[in-house]
Amino acid sequence: MSSEVTHGTSGAQLAVSGPPSAVQTAKPAGSLSAVLAGLVGLAGLFVLWWLATAVLPAPDSLARQFSPVQALQSLVQMVRDPELFWHVAVSLKRVLVGLVLALLIGVPLGLLIGLWRKAEATLSPSFQFLRMISPLSWMPIAVMVLGVGDAPVYFLLTFAAVWPIVLNTSAGVRQLDPAWLQLASSLAATRWETLWRVTLPGIVGHVLTGTRLAVGIVWIVLVPCEMLGVSAGLGYFILDTRDRMAYSELMALVIVIGILGFLLDYALRKLCQRWAVRY
């Protein structure tokens, strides 16, 4: 059963993959021109930052403490201090836990909605309602119910990440090639075998896309969530720099958050592209 279904599935995939010429003529996303265009955009952003903080403000303005020169100097000093890496590690751990919990909840719910129309009709209005509520709106409730510490942070990150995973998983189920399911049925596959051999492999790309979207949302929500009485993390570190009025360090942390978020998105984007090319 398993070898035949796998072989048939591959054939169905090859049948709908399109002409080879379309794949061969596609330009790589990471071409030199695209990289140069991205660097030009970053340079323009840096110039705007420099003008807004080092040129246009008055000499005694507070904005000058956020200038690129001071921020980069503070960044160099912070990189030499292991404290920064400790806060980064704590934040990344929270992101990982939130994503794992969101996947454990979101993928089964997405499968349920995609496979069972009655479940979709019953659950979709509630999910759409909850999805439109900002995760940060739950912060006071999370603290009152779960207390301070990591627990409310995990809850808020999971709540933020679960919706794109649910929606993309259910969309992937609906877009499965019917030929795959017919092939499994003709081979007398059970529902469990069809789920594991056909449905789940066929929706991995959609789950990865949902995970990438979830990472973007979680990374934005993370910093305010880490202001809920925790003693470590990038959000806590930003509050600490504000309280110490170390504004150049605060701006350096903003740069660190942007770089880490970019790297996380880049890694997931490459993973999605590799999966699409492979399958």
Rank of each mutant, 00 (worst) to 15 (best):
S21V: 13
V47Y: 13
V143Q: 08
V55T: 06
F85E: 02
V153I: 11
A119N: 03
I113A: 00
V148G: 06
D150K: 01
L136H: 07
L14I: 09
G38I: 10
L92V: 04
L92R: 05
V47S: 14
V16I: 15
L48Q: 12
S137N: 09
L84F: 08
M132I: 03
S124R: 10
S67H: 06
A22R: 15
I105C: 05
A63W: 05
Q13T: 12
G98Y: 03
A58M: 02
A26W: 08
L72H: 04
M139D: 05
V88F: 05
V69C: 02
L92Q: 06
A121K: 15
P152T: 03
K93M: 02
F66M: 10
P59L: 04
R131I: 08
G114M: 05
L48R: 13
S67G: 14
G41S: 15
P152K: 04
A102S: 15
S126M: 12
D81W: 09
A121R: 14
G98D: 07
S134N: 10
A26C: 09
P125L: 09
Q13S: 11
L45M: 12
V107K: 06
V40E: 07
G38F: 07
E83S: 01
L101G: 07
F129L: 15
V40L: 14
G147C: 08
M139N: 03
D150A: 02
V145D: 07
I105W: 00
A71C: 08
G149A: 09
L136F: 07
H7Q: 14
K118R: 15
S134K: 09
K27D: 11
L96K: 01
R117V: 07
L51I: 04
A12S: 06
S91N: 04
G11L: 14
L115E: 10
S10A: 13
E120C: 05
A52C: 03
G98R: 07
L92P: 03
A22F: 13
W49A: 08
P20Y: 01
Q65E: 13
T122L: 10
A22L: 14
P140D: 11
P59A: 09
R64N: 02
I105R: 01
A43V: 09
R94L: 08
L115V: 09
S134Y: 12
G149C: 07
W138H: 06
L39N: 03
V79S: 02
L111V: 10
S17L: 14
A34L: 12
R64F: 07
P28L: 08
A102N: 08
L51P: 08
A119Q: 09
V107C: 01
V90T: 03
V16Y: 14
E83W: 03
Q13E: 13
T25H: 07
G11V: 13
K118H: 11
L48Y: 10
A29K: 13
V153W: 01
P20C: 02
W50P: 04
E83Q: 08
L123K: 03
W86C: 00
A71G: 07
R64C: 05
L99T: 02
M78D: 01
D81K: 04
P108M: 00
V153G: 01
W86M: 04
K27E: 14
V76A: 13
G41M: 12
V153A: 03
P108V: 00
T25P: 02
L39H: 06
F129M: 14
L103W: 01
A52S: 06
D150C: 00
L51D: 05
D60L: 12
L112F: 00
L103N: 01
P152D: 06
E83D: 05
A54I: 10
W138V: 11
R117C: 05
